[in-house]
Amino acid sequence: MGVQVFSIAQEQPSDWWEVEALYDLCFAPGREALSSYRLRDGVDKVAPLCLIARDRDGIVAAAIRYWPIMVGDHPALLLGPIAVHPTRQGEGLGGLLMHQSLEMTEGLGWPRVMLVGDYPYYSRFGFEKLTGVEMPPPTNPDRVLGIGDWEGIEGAVTKWPEAK
C-alpha cells in the first residue's frame, strides 16, 4: 500500500457542510447540547486555526476548530471539536492538526488554550489539568485541560464578549 498524502488547509465557508458531517459521524447524537456549544453560539471561530485535512481524493479526513472564550477576565481559546474520520484514525492526522494549529496560537496573540477531553490522550500534546477554571455544567472538572500561560488564571469560562 502506498503512502497516503493529505493536504492541510484553513477551513473555508464552503467546507462547512463536509466538516459538520464529519463531526456528526464522529460524535454522539446530541453533541450540540454540550455546554461547550453554548460558548460557541453566535461567536465566530478563530478562522486561521480551523484546519482541515483532505486526502488525495479531496475528501475531508480530519478537522479541528478553535473558539475565543473568556476565563475570568482573561481571553483564551477553546479547542474543539477535533475529529478524524473513522477510516482514517490511527494515521496521525489528529496529532498533525493539533501540532500545526497549536504552533500558530501564540503567534496569533492567543497565549492559552483549553479543551474538555481525556487527559491521557491530550497530555501527549502538553495539556495539563486546569484547577480553578470552571466550565459551565455539566462538565467533569478532571476533563478541563489547558496548555500555554495559565499562571494565575482562574474563574468561570464564559462566552466571548463580541458574540453576535
Score class of each variant (00 low, 15 high):
Met1Tyr: 12
Met1Ala: 13
Gly2His: 10
Gly2Tyr: 00
Val3Lys: 07
Val5Ala: 13
Ile8Phe: 09
Gln10Phe: 03
Glu11Ala: 04
Glu11Arg: 07
Gln12Ile: 01
Ser14Cys: 03
Val19Tyr: 10
Cys26Val: 15
Cys26Met: 07
Ala28Arg: 11
Pro29Leu: 06
Arg31Phe: 04
Tyr37Gln: 15
Tyr37Glu: 15
Arg38Phe: 08
Leu39Arg: 06
Arg40Gly: 02
Asp41Phe: 12
Val43Trp: 06
Asp44Asn: 08
Ala47Phe: 01
Ala47Val: 14
Pro48Tyr: 01
Pro48Arg: 04
Leu51Pro: 00
Arg54Tyr: 13
Arg54Thr: 13
Arg56Glu: 15
Gly58Arg: 05
Ala62Arg: 10
Ala63Trp: 04
Ile64Ser: 05
Trp67Leu: 05
Met70Leu: 11
Met70Pro: 07
Ala76Pro: 08
Ala76Met: 03
Ala76Asn: 11
Leu78Ser: 05
Gly80Asn: 07
Ile82Asp: 04
Ala83Lys: 07
His85Arg: 13
Pro86Leu: 08
Thr87Ser: 15
Gly90Thr: 02
Leu96Ala: 15
Leu97Lys: 06
Leu97Trp: 02
Ser101Leu: 12
Leu102Ala: 10
Glu106Thr: 15
Leu108Ala: 08
Leu108Phe: 00
Gly109Cys: 03
Trp110Arg: 13
Pro111Asn: 05
Val113Gly: 01
Val116Ile: 14
Ser123Glu: 11
Arg124Ser: 10
Phe125Gly: 06
Phe127Ser: 08
Thr131Pro: 11
Val133Thr: 09
Val133Leu: 12
Glu134Ile: 06
Pro136Ile: 00
Asn140Pro: 00
Asn140Phe: 01
Asn140His: 12
Asp142Pro: 07
Arg143Cys: 15
Arg143Tyr: 15
Val144Ser: 02
Gly146Glu: 03
Gly146Arg: 00
Ile147Thr: 01
Ile147Gln: 09
Asp149Tyr: 01
Trp150His: 11
Glu151Asn: 06
Ile153Cys: 11
Glu154Leu: 01
Thr158Trp: 10
Thr158Pro: 00
Thr158Asn: 00
Trp160Tyr: 12
Pro161Phe: 11
Glu162His: 14
Lys164Thr: 15
